[in-house]
Amino acid sequence: MRGPLAALLAALLLVTGCDAGTPPITGTPTATGPAPLSTGSPPALAPAASPPSAVGSPTAVLPGPTGHFSATDIAWLQLSVAMAERLLPMLDLVPDRTTDPAWRRLAIRIGTSERTHLTRSRRLLADSGAPVVNPHEGHDMPGMVTDAELTALRSVTGRTFHHLVAGHLRAHLTQSVRIATAERRVGTDPATIALAAAVVRAGTADLARLDHLDRSPTLTTVPAPPQ
């Protein structure tokens, strides 16, 4: 990963970070776009581009149609979008990898919720005036399904598939709830805080459903496709 560190998001520093295999790079945000995450200690989320006077200030706000967006609001929205975009392709695999109706129902439920939150996050980012580009493109962070993991899921079915999906879902939901909880504490835009509250509620409920399903015996499976 390349780019400067951001020092804006103190409330989120302990709950997210990039791929631990990448060395940290220090610096200050520029006005050309949002800075990516770093793996320094502690890890930090990148803020969206800010006016020069706002750089380095965690309380700086950007005016938008729905309210005033802090760097924390924007960074949380950007990360939420990136995480959802990684999760949805995995959920789309479920109907073809298992015939277990319980797993199918859970995938549909979570997929519907994630798409709703993704739409709202993108709309709020547009309202904030933040760049439309994904600053986390290519980053592997906690709660994100990697390309390698998605490839592995395409090669298995049945119990193995359920086990892998459960692990990825639990990591995603747990991280989503953690960072949304932080956004609720320190965010400034009312609509963004309301979305974070919705994410916490949905994620907590889905974790409980996942825990129940993951303890249940697998019902039926589909055979693995020919290689």
Rank of each mutant, 00 (worst) to 15 (best):
Cys18Val: 08
Pro52Ile: 09
Ala107Lys: 01
Ala6Cys: 15
Pro4Asp: 06
Val199Arg: 01
Arg185Thr: 14
Arg170Glu: 15
Thr146Trp: 04
Asn134Gln: 05
Arg86Val: 00
Val61Glu: 13
Ala191Glu: 13
Ile179Glu: 15
Ala197Asn: 01
Arg178Glu: 14
Glu183Asn: 15
Trp103Gln: 07
His68Leu: 15
Ser128Cys: 03
Thr39His: 14
Thr218Trp: 09
Thr188Glu: 12
Ala54Phe: 03
Ala171Pro: 05
Val222Gly: 03
Leu88Asp: 08
Val199Thr: 02
Leu118Met: 08
Arg97Pro: 04
Glu137Asp: 12
Thr116Pro: 00
Gly21Leu: 07
Ile179Met: 15
Thr220Glu: 12
Ala130Pro: 06
Thr220Ser: 14
Leu91Tyr: 06
Ala205Lys: 01
Pro42Thr: 12
Thr30Met: 02
Leu125Pro: 03
Val177Ser: 06
Ala6Arg: 11
Thr112Gln: 02
Thr30Glu: 05
Val156Tyr: 07
Val177Gln: 07
Pro142Cys: 04
Thr72Met: 10
Ala102Glu: 08
Val61Leu: 14
Ala182Gln: 13
His172Asp: 13
Val145Pro: 05
Leu150Ala: 08
Ala205Arg: 07
Gly17Cys: 09
Thr28Cys: 00
Arg159Val: 14
Ala196Cys: 07
Ala180Tyr: 04
Glu114Asn: 05
Ala75Trp: 09
Arg109Asp: 12
Met1Glu: 08
Pro43Lys: 00
Thr112Tyr: 00
Ile74Trp: 07
Pro42His: 12
Thr204Pro: 01
Thr174Tyr: 04
Ser128Phe: 02
Ser176Thr: 12
Glu85Thr: 10
Arg123Gln: 11
Ala197Thr: 08
Arg209Glu: 09
Ala54Met: 01
Val61Lys: 13
Ala107Asp: 00
Ser57Pro: 08
Val81Ser: 08
Thr99Ile: 02
Thr16Trp: 11
Gly167Tyr: 03
Pro65Phe: 12
Leu173Pro: 02
Ala31Thr: 14
Ala194His: 13
Thr59His: 12
Ala54Val: 01
Asp100Lys: 05
Arg115Trp: 04
Gly64Trp: 03
His117Phe: 15
Arg123Gly: 00
Leu219Glu: 13
Glu149Gly: 13
Arg97Gly: 05
Ala7Tyr: 11
Ala166Val: 01
Thr221Asp: 14
Asp73Phe: 06
Val200Trp: 01
Ser41Thr: 14
Thr188Leu: 12
Leu124Val: 00
Trp76Leu: 06
Pro190Phe: 07
Gly138Val: 10
Met90Pro: 02
Asp214Gln: 10
Pro131Val: 09
